[in-house]
Amino acid sequence: MEMRPVLVAICLLLVTPITGSFWTVGSQVVMDPMLICKKTRRLKGKLADICRKEPALLKEIAKGVQVGTRECQYQFRNRRWNCTTVRRSLRKILLRDTRETGFVNAITAAGVTYAVTKACTMGDLVECSCEKTSSKGNRLSKITRNAERNKNVPTEGEWEWGGCGDNVNFGFKKSRDFMDAPYRKRSDIKTLVKLHNNDAGRLAVKKFMRTECKCHGLSGSCTVRTCWRKMPNFREVGNRLKESFDGAAKVIPTNDGHSFITEGPTIKPPSKVDLVYSEDSPDFCKPNRKTGSLGTQGRQCNSTSPGVEGCELLCCGRGYDTKVVKEKVNCQCRFQWCCEVTCNTCVVKNSVNTCR
């Protein structure tokens, strides 16, 4: 079996860990990414360097794919397309250039950036360490000015950079080296869109770093503060990219074929942090092997909601079935001195709606 497509698929397909040192990629069970790299001979450039020289980094990259996978499934849990990984559905999705593809690429690139950066901070990689910014030099002055402008750094009292900040620049670079390397020499529209969305995902981590500080002084005073830079919570990253997904712009290639523009002249050109796509999405209402749609039959819906999770939209107007489900729960709990909580068991009835 050729290993290169499987390796690249680690960043494109959602990866689910199973027992031992094996992974499920699409419908295939393969060995962990590090072992795949050891058996691969046709890789070139930066991707080959990571495979052959940085096995610990490769493990963190695989963790990052998991982080992106879980966040994708959370963000789309109530939509017709729910970022499913079953029956090669995602592989079919990624063969096209829809806004769903754009989100998967962005959240995966963000997850890899996040995991590698976190590993640096935790000391899990010999290739990097946390960010220890010097108290002198232009770099500090630039960070200070930007942070003060954004009101992220205290301006009262004395403070200095210190502690162990997140080395996001290293995570950003390694995410780009691994995920973008196979596509750098191409200039077709799908590649341009993919690389743009990859960077948008990474920037959703890098551009929203926050400043944390620790006070020093007698009797709890805060006369001196030590500050460092930390990544945002990954849920914030997911929320931000989901907003970009909702406002994604459709683009077309320019005449020279080396860039893209928005399809309509009245549409605002996308910034570096915006998501883009070049193909319209299917409606995902019915199963379609060609597009990867699994349909929404059997999905649970909310009969009282007018939103995307509501039965009208999620079931595509086909209607829904309702059944009453009984569930045992703890109730009438009491605290008894000392120190025990006792509860009764109650049976509650819940209505469950599923799309026809």
Score class of each variant (00 low, 15 high):
76 F>L: 11
35 L>H: 15
99 R>Q: 08
134 S>T: 00
182 P>F: 06
243 E>G: 11
157 G>C: 13
319 G>D: 00
340 E>T: 14
353 N>Q: 11
179 M>L: 15
314 L>E: 03
153 V>L: 14
52 R>E: 03
94 L>W: 03
271 S>E: 07
35 L>T: 15
16 T>E: 03
353 N>K: 12
43 L>C: 10
279 E>K: 15
237 V>I: 07
16 T>K: 02
34 M>L: 08
165 G>M: 09
182 P>Y: 10
122 M>G: 04
228 W>N: 01
180 D>Y: 11
21 S>R: 15
245 F>A: 07
138 N>S: 06
246 D>T: 08
224 V>P: 11
148 E>S: 04
176 R>Q: 05
67 V>P: 01
331 C>P: 13
161 W>C: 13
166 D>L: 10
115 A>L: 06
90 L>E: 08
314 L>C: 08
6 V>S: 00
334 R>C: 09
158 E>R: 05
146 N>Y: 03
244 S>C: 03
273 V>G: 05
235 R>V: 07
199 D>Q: 01
79 R>L: 04
262 T>M: 04
202 R>S: 09
277 Y>G: 00
234 F>N: 08
78 N>I: 01
48 A>Y: 05
5 P>W: 12
345 T>M: 12
268 K>I: 02
126 V>L: 05
5 P>G: 13
192 L>A: 09
59 K>W: 13
239 N>K: 13
38 K>H: 10
164 C>F: 04
55 P>Q: 08
75 Q>M: 15
131 E>Q: 09
32 D>N: 14
226 T>M: 07
38 K>Y: 14
330 N>G: 09
31 M>L: 01
183 Y>I: 06
70 R>W: 04
333 C>P: 14
304 T>Q: 09
204 A>W: 07
303 S>K: 15
329 V>P: 06
217 G>H: 11
172 F>L: 04
65 V>F: 14
280 D>Y: 12
356 R>S: 01
291 T>G: 02
206 K>P: 00
114 Y>L: 00
12 L>I: 03
164 C>E: 02
126 V>T: 06
310 G>F: 01
165 G>V: 10
340 E>W: 01
140 L>S: 06
247 G>T: 14
168 V>E: 02
22 F>P: 07
231 M>N: 07
131 E>N: 08
146 N>C: 00
180 D>A: 11
120 C>E: 04
9 A>H: 13
147 A>G: 05
312 E>I: 12
310 G>Y: 01
316 C>W: 13
198 N>K: 00
284 F>V: 02
251 V>R: 10
148 E>A: 01
81 W>K: 03
215 C>G: 09
34 M>Y: 11
353 N>C: 06
50 I>V: 14
352 V>A: 02
88 R>Y: 00
331 C>N: 13
212 E>C: 10
291 T>M: 08
347 V>R: 10
229 R>F: 10
29 V>K: 14
314 L>I: 08
248 A>I: 00
334 R>E: 14
231 M>W: 09
106 A>T: 02
317 G>C: 07
157 G>R: 06
111 G>I: 05
44 K>L: 11
127 E>D: 15
104 V>K: 02
3 M>Y: 08
59 K>P: 04
